[in-house]
Design a binder for these strands. Structure first.
Length: 922
DNA sequence: GCAAGGTC
């Protein structure tokens, strides 16, 4: 940039991306000397004035701001109305960029200022969006002043040196960066609007979408960020549903001494082959002397977290306080606005060398909770201080989130304000502290050639954990062992476990998935999550875990059936790499736009041609509608009972559009409790009679009338029935006639690598007449209980297997908890086709192979299993016990079906195994 | 009535 020399001061208009940056930069440049502030047209965007010298030339600086993007894009008037055109035209319809109503004041300020200036310096954030906003500002300003000399200030942090350097080294704005954003905006609008209009108009009126939102206002939106986010939720849900439990075995050893108890874990982990496990276990039992083969002591460090970025703040607030990302950002924004924390939208997770960390700590010394920690941190004698690490991310615009003003709590703060401020301060203090230190001892032993290990940990110094109360590091004492020492284990047990599916995605998990796949930005990720909830595509439980709704699942399923991965993150990744190419100049804007839109248009046309798939998927979950959306599903019905599942709403009798009856919870879709009634019912009326047998009451009886020709001759067409579970006649008729459940349709199987979960036979409703052992309601079993994590898809896909019979028919009472065990078929490599009973109660983990029973199916054996403490996946137990029970009937079998010698290795008694032998150790 | 991105 040429040195302009002396002469009259140059009038310079400076524009920042937000008011706070305008204020900060003006303060830094003016050194607070002669800084004046005046109002602009917009009350948020003040104008600061001061004198400054750029490369030797005196300048009269006026400094104002925008608030993010100044402009939006939209379709030309003719295409704006939904029914104005075929959605496919939206791939080529003209679009315009304009300043929306709420930004007109800012535009007028810029125009007023620009008229009188010679230079325009753009202080927008140094990322692609910032560059695009810079060009929006340029467009507005040059409209009123074509002679403006336009410059770009490039800065990476709001610190003196950085700001003064950038203004003395101005560059020109980067058109390519801005072009990349233009591409993104246009593609997002065209794809989003076309698919949203298409699927909304195609599906909304075709089905009875029993969601909370008024159907007339319901929009079935599609967006390149919201759909992949939904995809993560659905994919995990399907993974859970297709999970087949697989039994495994492990050997555990404990040893009691004067100093305490050591628990040794088998270093093989676990084996899925029972025979192998038993053989090894036999070897150990027969030669149980343990020899210490290794004693290792070492210092371990637990490092504090990196400085706080936005995504990390959202994840941690969700994990520690169960706050939604949306609420976290709302509160953080509030704290930022009132000056207590730094800018909350940042990707940066490392402090610049310039940041004066001590000063921030000094401010916190007076705090009643963490003030003393801050004092210790500042005391060099304590040695607690440590220069913070960095996660390696830097958005070149903002520092990590940190406290900017001391507060011991403000009267206007909500509990969430206190929480977020505390998290920001404690996190800051933690990341400039020494790691926690511990001494860990690991002892390895050998029993009959099998290695086992145990470890203990003694915390030497908690350091950062003293202030970061959200994390812990458990200590455990282990007795002293010496190399070569021999001892006899106190217990040596063969324990079983069953693999468990992963949990539903938590909000922190979901943010992690999005972050990894590049879906959304730090400032928008929480919006995409909220959108899924607003659109009724997903629900979030009290544990912050997400499940798809029927609607969300059906949409993803429909596109998946078409073979399109529109619900996966690839499309966004592809767009992101194209935008990158545009921003570095390896691809031209027009070229990328044309290629992408052409591709997406072809995809849209094809999707529309295959809309039958979408229709089929929706049909699985929703009733067809041939009348206006307002129907009895929304207008309630007569109350039959209080919902025992959600305990918040009543369950009401409803007649569905297809004529079938059901009793459903009014809390739907939050609560999905439903009892499907026989399809042979032509009339049903709730009476004032209550059932004396079923609990919890009152349960009002229903007067049914059946269609004569659809029920067996020995049943009466009129029947006063109860849905509480006591009514044998109703149960019979459900089994004979089926129900009106839409879930009776077949649903192809999903999930990874599980082809056999697809439909392999006639489907039946899952809503049997056994009471759910989880919620106590009838109409479903606990494995399909709407309150359970693995509900939904399983509930709708339960197979009627002629070999197994219906779940209800093939169930047997659980001897462990008194609920019921249902017969299932394993699909794991080692046990494919093998039948097993598993308890339907979520609280009970009973499990038994059918072939280990001795014929008396009504009473599966129950034993108290020894439990392994170390394997977190081994929550479902019972296999070992099942063999004990079977053993009593002389029917020990291996996983492959061969008989196993069943005799205690210690005393020879055939009634038990050695691990529970009363004579062992004598 | 549609997207996602800024920000207040």
């Amino acid at each position: 940039m040429a040195n302009g020399g002396g002469g009259r001061p140059i009038k310079v208009l400076n524009v920042a991306e937000k008011p706070s940056v305008a204020k900060s930069v003006a303060g830094i440049l003016s050194r607070q000397q002669g800084l004046r502030m005046r109002e602009g047209r917009s009350r948020f965007n003040k104008i600061f004035e001061f004198n400054y010298t750029i490369n030797g030339r005196p300048c009269l600086m006026s400094f104002t701001s925008v608030t993010g993007h100044l402009m939006e894009i939209e379709f030309d008037e003719r295409f704006k109305k939904w029914h104005s055109c075929d959605p496919v035209q939206l791939y080529h319809a003209p679009i315009r960029k304009y300043v929306p109503e709420d930004k007109l004041d800012i535009k007028r300020t810029l125009e007023n200022e620009a008229r009188n200036c010679q230079w325009l310096i753009l202080w927008l954030d140094c990322d692609r969006e910032g560059e695009n906003i810079a060009f929006e500002v340029v467009e507005v300003c040059t409209q009123v002043n074509r002679n403006l000399n336009i410059w770009r200030a490039r800065f990476s942090a709001l610190i003196d040196r950085e700001i003064h350097h950038s203004v003395q080294n101005l560059i020109r704005p980067n058109q390519l960066f801005s072009d990349a954003v233009d591409v993104r905006q246009e593609i997002d609008l065209r794809i989003g609007a076309s698919f949203t209009r298409f699927q909304t108009m195609f599906l909304r009126d075709a089905f009875v979408l029993d969601v909370i939102t008024d159907e007339r206002n319901l929009v079935l939106s599609y967006g390149p960020c919201q759909f992949p986010t939904l995809g993560f939720i659905v994919e995990r849900y399907w993974e859970i549903q297709s999970h087949e439990p697989e039994e495994f075995w492990t050997i555990n050893c404990t040893h009691n001494s004067d100093e305490g108890t050591a628990t040794f874990n088998w270093m093989r982990g676990h084996l899925f082959d029972y025979t192998c496990a038993v053989i090894i276990y036999e070897m150990c039992i027969q030669e149980p002397s343990a020899t210490v083969t290794k004693v290792r002591q070492q210092e371990k460090l637990k490092y504090p977290p990196y400085p706080l970025s936005t995504v990390e703040l959202e994840k941690r607030a969700s994990r520690y306080f169960r706050m939604s990302s949306e609420q976290t950002m709302k509160v953080a924004e509030d704290l930022y606005q009132s000056g207590f924390i730094s800018y909350p939208r940042t990707e940066t997770d490392g402090f610049s060398d310039q940041t004066i960390l001590h000063r921030i700590v000094e401010e916190q010394q007076e705090h009643p909770q963490w003030g003393s920690y801050a004092q210790r941190l500042l005391d060099p004698g304590v040695g607690l201080w440590r220069n913070p690490g960095s996660g390696g991310h830097d958005d070149k615009a903002h520092p990590p989130i940190h406290p900017t003003k001391f507060s011991a709590g403000e009267s206007s703060w909500s509990q969430d304000h206190h929480r977020v401020y505390e998290l920001v301060v404690r996190h800051f203090l933690a990341c400039i502290s020494q790691p926690a230190k511990a001494a860990e001892t690991t002892v390895e032993i050998d029993i009959a050639g099998e290695p086992f290990s145990a470890s203990g940990r003694i915390i030497i110094a908690k350091n950062y954990l003293d202030v970061y109360r959200f994390e812990s590091w458990g200590g455990s004492i282990i007795p002293t062992y010496n190399f070569g020492q021999q001892f006899t284990p106190t217990t040596l047990t063969l324990d079983s476990g069953v693999t468990r599916p992963p949990p539903l995605l938590s909000e922190a998990d979901l943010l992690g998935c999005m972050d990894k796949a590049g879906i959304g930005t730090d400032a928008t990720m929480h919006d995409h999550i909220k959108k899924l909830l607003d659109r009724c595509y997903a629900t979030k439980d009290s544990n912050t875990r997400f499940s798809p709704t029927y609607l969300g699942e059906a949409l993803v399923m429909g596109y998946d059936d078409m073979g399109y991965e529109l619900w996966k993150p690839h499309l966004r990744s592809m767009m992101e790499s194209d935008m990158k190419a545009v921003s570095v100049g390896t691809k031209r804007k027009a070229e990328v736009l044309e290629a992408c839109l052409q591709q997406m248009k072809a995809c849209f046309i094809d999707a529309r041609a295959n809309k039958g798939k979408l229709f089929e998927a929706m049909s699985i979950f929703f009733e067809r509608s041939n009348r206006p959306p307002s129907n009895e599903l929304h207008t309630g019905g007569d109350v039959v009972r209080r919902c025992g599942l959600c305990n918040e709403s009543d369950m009401v009798l409803r007649k569905k559009p297809d004529g079938n009856f059901m009793v459903g919870c009014l809390g739907y879709p939050q609560c999905r409790n439903v009892v499907w009634l026989p399809s042979s019912i032509c009339e049903a009326v709730v009476t004032t009679n209550t059932c004396s047998a079923c609990t919890p009451g009152p349960i009002f009886k229903i007067q049914f009338k059946f269609r004569q020709l659809e029920i067996p001759p020995n049943y009466d067409v009129n029947h006063l029935g109860c849905i509480g579970g006591c009514d044998f006649t109703l149960r019979q008729l459900v089994e004979i006639c089926g129900t009106g459940s839409r879930n009776a349709s077949s649903i192809p199987g999903r999930g990874q690598g599980n082809p056999t979960s697809s439909n392999s036979g006639q489907r039946r409703s899952s809503g049997g007449w056994m009471a759910c052992t989880h919620c106590g309601q009838t109409g479903h079993l606990s494995d399909t209980c709407p309150s359970q994590a693995s509900r939904g898809r399983t509930a709708r896909t339960r197979e009627f297997n002629p070999e197994n019979g219906l779940a209800g028919e093939s169930s047997i009472p659980c001897n462990s908890c008194g609920a019921s065990c249902v017969l299932r078929t394993a699909n794991t490599a080692n046990n494919r086709g093998r039948k097993f009973y598993s308890c339907q109660s979520q609280a009970c983990n009973f499990f038994v192979w059918e072939d280990s029973l001795s014929g008396d199916r009504s009473a599966p054996p129950h034993t108290n299993m020894s439990r392994s403490a170390s394997n977190p996946t081994s929550t479902r137990r019972g296999g070992r016990g099942s063999r004990r029970g079977a053993h009593a009937n002389n029917a020990f079998v291996s996983a492959t079906g061969e008989p196993i010698s069943g005799r205690c290795f210690v005393c020879g008694d055939p009634s038990h195994f050695a691990n529970v032998c009363p004579n062992r150790g004598r």
